[in-house]
Simulated assay, not measured.
Amino acid sequence: MRDPLSKKVQSIEPSGIRKFFDIVSEMKDAISLGVGEPDFDTPWHIREEGIYSLEQGRTFYTSNAGLKELKEEIANYLKRRFRLSYDPAGEIYLTVGGSEAIDGALRAMLDPGDEVLLPQPSYVSYEPCIVLADGVPKIIELKEEDEFKLRKQQLLDAITDKTKILIMPFPNNPTGAIMTREDLEDIAEVVREHDLYVISDEIYSELTYSGDHVSIASLPGMKERTIVINGFSKSYAMTGWRLGYACGPKPIIKQMLKIHQFAIMCAPTLSQYAAISAVRDGDDDVERMRIAYNQRRNFLMKSFRDMGLKCFEPFGAFYVFPSIKEFGMTSDEFATKLLEEEKVAVVPGTAFGRCGEGFLRISYAYSIDDLKVALERIERFIERHRK
């Protein structure tokens, strides 16, 4: 029989995160610090709006781009929070999570052979989505000594005559790294000089702990060459509602919406109505969760210092990225042994790119009580294996 499967799809490795989740789900008394998901419930006023919408029978399709009222509220929110100005009529549309927006942007903008600059370590979906869109990923390895920031010279060294898009994954999953305004100005200068486009994934924009988040699209000359991707999963603890959005120049959004129209139709109606309440009335909820995450972040960093585990201090998202190079094990070996011996699940750094070797991603989207127990187990483990 003829092989029914696409060679391109077969060439893509499954997510390196899932294997540990599958094991821990069947392991008694195990603690997982691997899930990138808030442990908070969706705030009640958001859930209440979703319930009310269901009771009112709002179970119909919306327009392909999403509810007009929600797009207007998003435009108001972006202007209020990040000094970004977008026309809700043609520069914003709603997606099924931020991941759909990443995929849609790449498919709308790439021709076969176009190169995409991808800083790593970074979110697991970027590289496969580039390949599926017939682009060529060009990896830029971020350095621990640079706090995992993208530096101007790294970008210049990676550009070729085939380069079209730069992905900006900040605040970063898995490292927690952020980019300051000064950092972004250096990058924006190169982007403008070399006529590149940017896909800026800002899903963790509300979760920063050292000053306010700055969007690269807010810098001079960058709005017209940037797609901003954001959503509701992280900031509002709405992962299961599956709702994100993309903002950008009308010609690009128009083509992204065409893909969305044929592949998706529209984002979930119930989620869209609930999200109106989130962006309109949810600032206090976001701040409450941000404060709690920062307390947990500080707790982890102090615990790592006390046990002598090297870890640069992250100021974004809800992850830490400690180095385990001193133990003479690969990231996968360390994570596997930690799970087997102490029943703590973390994610090997290599799940986020080869340059993640020697690191682990640990999420602090868990209660302090769970973190305390997990850290006691981790300390036992490293004392046993430290050379």
Score class of each variant (00 low, 15 high):
residue 238 M to I: 05
residue 85 S to A: 09
residue 12 I to P: 05
residue 112 P to W: 04
residue 276 I to C: 07
residue 49 E to P: 01
residue 314 P to H: 11
residue 9 V to D: 03
residue 269 T to I: 07
residue 4 P to R: 02
residue 79 K to G: 15
residue 225 R to G: 11
residue 311 C to S: 14
residue 171 P to R: 14
residue 247 C to P: 05
residue 310 K to R: 10
residue 138 K to T: 10
residue 300 L to N: 06
residue 290 R to D: 08
residue 275 A to P: 03
residue 337 K to R: 13
residue 136 V to D: 02
residue 279 V to A: 07
residue 17 I to H: 08
residue 81 R to S: 09
residue 179 M to I: 11
residue 299 F to Y: 15
residue 145 E to Q: 13
residue 191 V to C: 01
residue 281 D to E: 09
residue 317 A to E: 13
residue 241 W to L: 08
residue 225 R to A: 10
residue 288 R to K: 13
residue 6 S to M: 05
residue 136 V to H: 06
residue 74 I to T: 04
residue 13 E to F: 08
residue 354 R to K: 12
residue 218 S to K: 03
residue 212 D to K: 10
residue 2 R to C: 03
residue 278 A to S: 02
residue 55 E to N: 06
residue 288 R to Y: 13
residue 338 L to Y: 01
residue 250 K to Y: 15
residue 373 V to H: 10
residue 213 H to I: 04
residue 112 P to C: 07
residue 270 L to I: 11
residue 93 Y to Q: 09
residue 245 Y to M: 11
residue 381 F to V: 04
residue 353 G to W: 05
residue 273 Y to C: 03
residue 284 D to M: 02
residue 335 A to V: 05
residue 290 R to S: 10
residue 305 R to C: 10
residue 186 D to G: 11
residue 238 M to N: 03
residue 252 I to D: 15
residue 172 N to L: 12
residue 318 F to W: 13
residue 261 Q to A: 12
residue 99 S to K: 14
residue 19 K to S: 11
residue 215 S to I: 08
residue 183 D to T: 09
residue 251 P to M: 07
residue 159 I to R: 00
residue 116 V to I: 02
residue 214 V to C: 08
residue 139 I to P: 05
residue 194 H to I: 00
residue 255 Q to R: 15
residue 302 K to C: 07
residue 162 K to N: 14
residue 206 E to S: 03
residue 66 G to D: 06
residue 249 P to E: 13
residue 190 V to M: 00
residue 73 E to S: 12
residue 343 K to E: 02
residue 288 R to W: 06
residue 243 L to Q: 04
residue 180 T to Q: 08
residue 258 K to S: 13
residue 246 A to G: 10
residue 60 F to D: 15
residue 327 F to L: 04
residue 143 K to V: 01
residue 325 K to F: 02
residue 34 G to P: 07
residue 107 R to W: 10
residue 372 K to D: 07
residue 175 T to R: 04
residue 73 E to A: 15
residue 290 R to K: 15
residue 201 D to Q: 13
residue 80 R to L: 05
residue 58 R to K: 13
residue 340 E to Q: 14
residue 351 A to Y: 08
residue 272 Q to N: 06
residue 320 V to D: 09
residue 276 I to H: 00
residue 330 T to C: 10
residue 247 C to T: 14
residue 16 G to F: 07
residue 136 V to I: 15
residue 106 L to F: 08
residue 189 E to A: 00
residue 203 I to L: 11
